[in-house]
Write a protein that binds this DNA or RNA. Structure first.
Lengths: 131, 131
DNA sequence: CGGCATCCTCGGGGATACTG
DNA sequence: CAGTATCCCCGAGGATGCCG
């Protein structure tokens, strides 16, 4: 290969390799961030999470919790009473995400209004040129 | 409201309000992080981005670039020659994301192997209990 | 209470072809 | 070169119902 040396550029950025994407793959599901947020305060029961997060269904709550558990970010403790009590809490690995998440929130606090301005300006200029 | 004070819990975590989610909504599209990564080195042409990112189609490249532009994170400079030259670069707002992204990468570097271990352990224990 | 099983919809995103 | 325009498919995720 490359018998002719036109200096062909090889891909050097890949979804499965890029560190950015690997973390986002973990925390960017629709409800993941919300659940982590709910768990920040400490140990909390299944039902309580559902009540605190607006609009989440039991299906997605369970599914997202399972994923987080599988990734080792949260712990699931079952008290086998009737009815059962199931409480979730962040694992040490999960807690290591908190500083990261706080900076996400901080960025939003200081920059999100600029994003909204940019969107408004962009949409306006686009609608103008189509008139 | 709350005529009866059973201390009914109100949702206090919302997709549209949570700072975590607002940032993730911006940077968590499939190709967004990769493109930001490609732009970190500085001004770069459309075609070059496509060549550097493995597996991206022209459609998704254009579409993701448009979103980033709309959000004010990147700038698009056109030199109207034939053929045209279009170069993209991070805006100041986009550059403000870089420290955040670096920490995402750093977290992956130090913790991702633990996530993989947790996944393997979880999958193993699940397959065990179904035998 | 804390799930799991189903069904269904909607849109993200891939493949391909055309264009100024 | 730097895009549009179409068609199409698959899977995330919502709604609903049943269960130990």
């Amino acid at each position: 290969m490359s018998a002719h040396s036109k200096k062909s550029i090889q891909p050097d950025i890949s979804l499965t390799v890029c560190g950015y994407s690997k973390v986002l793959e973990i925390i960017s599901n629709k409800w993941t961030a919300l659940i982590i947020y709910a768990l920040e305060d400490g140990r909390i029961r299944y039902g309580e999470i559902g009540k605190r997060i607006e609009g989440i269904s039991k299906k997605m709550l369970t599914q997202t919790l399972r994923q987080l558990e599988r990734d080792g970010l949260i712990r699931r403790d079952v008290t086998p009473s009737i009815p059962p009590i199931v409480a979730y809490s962040l694992s040490p690995l999960g807690e290591s995400l908190i500083p990261l998440m706080l900076e996400l929130k901080q960025w939003a606090k200081t920059h999100y209004s600029l994003v909204e301005q940019a969107r408004a300006a962009y949409d306006h200029s686009v609608s103008q040129e189509h008139s």
